[in-house]
């Protein structure tokens, strides 16, 4: 079993083009995919699972097992209850673990007697996760899986992922706008903007590489290391690349380590400096 590798990928929809020369999702780790709406996260994930067919490029899943996919709508037949779902999935998937499925539904608080159409938003996402985790998969591809979940449910979900990762052959690709979740769970980060990968690496390394400098509105700070600038109503934020060197060179400017949210905002909304 090897890494999940995307190579030479190109997928075009009208004006938008997703172009990725090479991207690796390391087996044994969680890779977070972040970016604005329209950056190409969902397109990438659909290409990864085979739902969308790219014009060019290849996807090497590194495993003979199928993917476990969670997308934003709940695709299960609306009139079904847990027992019928079990029946369908045991027919669909090799190695379907029904006990595990029922157990997960129970621990998620999903009533077996409820029809899918009666599930709350959070239950719909959790049900999808339960399905993905109840049969052998080569990769979990999760597109905004925690959208609409309350904090407790999100933490429960993250614990599920941590549990899944106890097996070193597990591989997870997760996209989310909830940057705190990504910070908590992703070992590696991929930043997409306008269909291209602009940052790709270890989460902790990226978050310590970049810093943010808050300054007055009319300031005009330049220097090596300043890569982005964003002017707001109350001040100006600068994104610094190479925080350590910058702080050493400019001890009078107080640059703080960046949070994932700040990094995202400065990259997508900030101008190049």
């Amino acid at each position: 079993m090897g890494d999940f590798i995307v190579k030479g990928l190109r997928k075009t929809y009208g004006d938008f083009s997703l172009e990725i020369p090479e991207l690796v999702f390391r087996r044994g780790f969680v890779t977070g995919v972040v970016g604005d709406n329209g950056a190409g996260k969902t397109t990438l994930m659909r290409c990864m699972t085979g739902a969308a067919l790219p014009e060019e490029g290849s996807v090497d899943p590194g495993s003979p097992l199928p993917a476990g996919a969670v997308f934003d709508e709940c695709p299960f037949p609306q009139e079904m209850r847990a027992r019928q779902l079990s029946s369908i999935f045991s027919s669909m998937f090799d190695g379907w673990d029904d006990q595990r499925f029922r157990g997960m539904l129970k621990s998620f608080g999903i009533d077996e007697g409820k029809k899918v159409k009666e599930y709350s938003r959070g239950m719909r996402m959790k049900a999808q996760v339960a399905v993905a985790l109840s049969h052998p998969t080569g990769i979990l591809v999760l597109d905004e899986p925690t959208a609409g979940m309350d904090p407790a449910a999100r933490e429960e979900f993250l614990d599920c992922i941590r549990d899944y990762m106890l097996d070193e052959s597990s591989c997870v690709a997760i996209s989310s706008h909830i940057t705190s979740d990504i910070e908590k769970i992703a070992d590696y980060l991929v930043f997409l903007k306008d269909g291209k990968v602009i940052i790709d690496g270890e989460t902790s390394e990226i978050l310590s590489r970049y810093g943010v400098l808050h300054a007055p509105r009319d300031s005009d700070i330049c220097g090596s290391g300043i890569v982005r600038r964003r002017t707001g109503p109350h001040g100006c934020d600068y994104l610094v690349e190479g925080l350590e060197e910058f702080s050493a060179a400019h001890p009078e400017l107080k640059a703080d380590p960046v949070t994932l949210e700040e990094l995202m905002i400065l990259i997508s909304k900030g101008e190049e400096a």
């Binding site: 780790f29 993250l158 941590r162 990762m165 106890l166 270890e202």
Partner: peptide, 14 residues
């Protein structure tokens, strides 16, 4: 290291 990562809720890399 995986169990520890899970229990402490941190990255396996760490």
């Amino acid at each position: 290291m995986r169990v520890l990562a899970k229990d402490l809720r941190i990255s396996v890399i760490t």
